[in-house]
Design a protein around this nucleic acid. Structure first.
Lengths: 225, 225
DNA sequence: CGCGGCTCTCAAGCTGCTCTCAGCATGCCT
DNA sequence: AGGCATGCTGAGAGCAGCTTGAGAGCCGCG
């Protein structure tokens, strides 16, 4: 089992390396966010232990970036703060587990083992379809390198379509899940909003992620069109 | 994403509804166990937030009943007690996650997101006949590597034929099952549509998946022709 | 209080799907 | 082979369903 430990505090990093090695892990160390990200990309690790407070690039940024790049290596976050916000943020951002400093070494090893057992999570925290990426927590959408700004309604619509990517989703289904008021709305809200969405995520890129299936509904292509 | 919140404390329920709506969820409320169960049954929710201490029917009972009815909607339990027994009970009973009151709103949202992420419903199987593949959920058809675009009627026709692959299906049978209106249609709709279908799934590939059985009907070859 | 942005309604216009009809091709029986 | 029955196909009318633009109401913000 090959681990990467990203931790700027040198003594703690050393201690972890030594301890984990004695548990039988192969352990590499990075001391800042940027080099940690770089190592994570190329290193083919079985798991990563990642401090949140890091120079150059925070642990959050590192996980988020990895997940954007569809790298689902198990990540265990370490944070000095113990606010609830941190935990939530970390998990939202795509980490798999979380420990607050000061942590017990034994607990760390136990959690790591659990992570490795579980393997990479089958479902990432961000939704991906081809070059379309939607981050529910950050409320952000990107196509390729371009960040796309959506209104709340447009975002919900795209999120639901992406969660059911590949399937045809009916208008009624959308009314029920994206608009609270199922049956209340008589008019063609759904059509209108699909139109808005296409103008933002399809037209500028000359590709169609959202397909109309006449008489049935709409389908988001799993390959992003 | 459509959520049901079952919580008897009116102010908390309101607050949750407001907050979750601002996150982009569609939120319904029930104030007791019995009506919550009823809503859960018919509401087609993506997830349910369920208080344990409820009038008329406890949260435990609600989950237990749902699971008995083979309803696997993701459920997050909320409890005022914080003994470990509760958690175990809740999870035993079939809940997917658990929070103790007082809980952090941010954590609730993060856990909900995790639940929704996990709750990917697996798609129903596709129909296969030789190199012909039909996906009812995606409303898509492929022959070998080529994706074929069919109209709604053509799709229904092929789907019915594929479900009865190998059998000879009569015109009357098709009128009844593919065209709602059995007997209404006097003309040769079926022939016409079989024609359309062949032009799309047979002619371009130089093979005949649909065979005419004179005086009887049509048969879809199990080996795709 | 005015402004801008978001949500939703409405109506007009267009696309392309569905079905009919008529004529042609093919198969079957004597 | 001839003649009848059955199935196939091309053309086109009608229309349901989708798209789009314009604009009204509403809310939050300065």
């Amino acid at each position: 089992m090959r681990l990467l430990v990203v931790e700027d505090e040198v003594r703690l990093a050393r201690a972890l390396q030594k301890g984990l090695r004695s548990e039988g892990f192969a352990v590499d160390i990075s001391h800042d966010g940027a080099s940690g990200l770089e190592s994570a990309r190329v290193g083919n690790y079985d798991a990563i232990v990642l401090d949140v407070m890091l120079p150059r690039l925070s642990g959050y940024e590192v996980v988020r970036t990895l997940r954007r790049e569809r790298n689902w290596v198990p990540v265990l976050l370490l944070s000095a703060k113990d606010g609830e916000y941190d935990e939530a943020d970390g998990l939202d951002v795509g980490a798999d587990d979380y420990l607050t400093k000061p942590f017990s070494y034994v607990v760390l090893v136990a959690r790591l083992r659990a992570l490795l057992r579980r393997g990479a999570p089958e479902r990432p925290a961000v939704l991906v379809a081809g070059d379309l990426v939607l981050d529910p927590a950050a409320k952000q959408v990107a196509r390729g390198d371009a960040t796309i700004s959506l209104t709340a309604r447009e975002f919900s619509l795209l999120e639901y379509l992406m969660r059911r990517a590949g399937e045809v989703v009916s208008r009624l289904d959308l009314l029920e899940h994206v608009w609270d008021s199922y049956g209340v709305s008589e008019a063609n809200v759904v059509e209108v909003y699909v139109g808005y969405l296409r103008r933002k995520i399809d037209t500028p890129f000359g590709r169609a992620a959202v397909t109309t299936v006449r008489g049935v509904g709409y389908r988001l292509e799993t390959d992003g069109g």
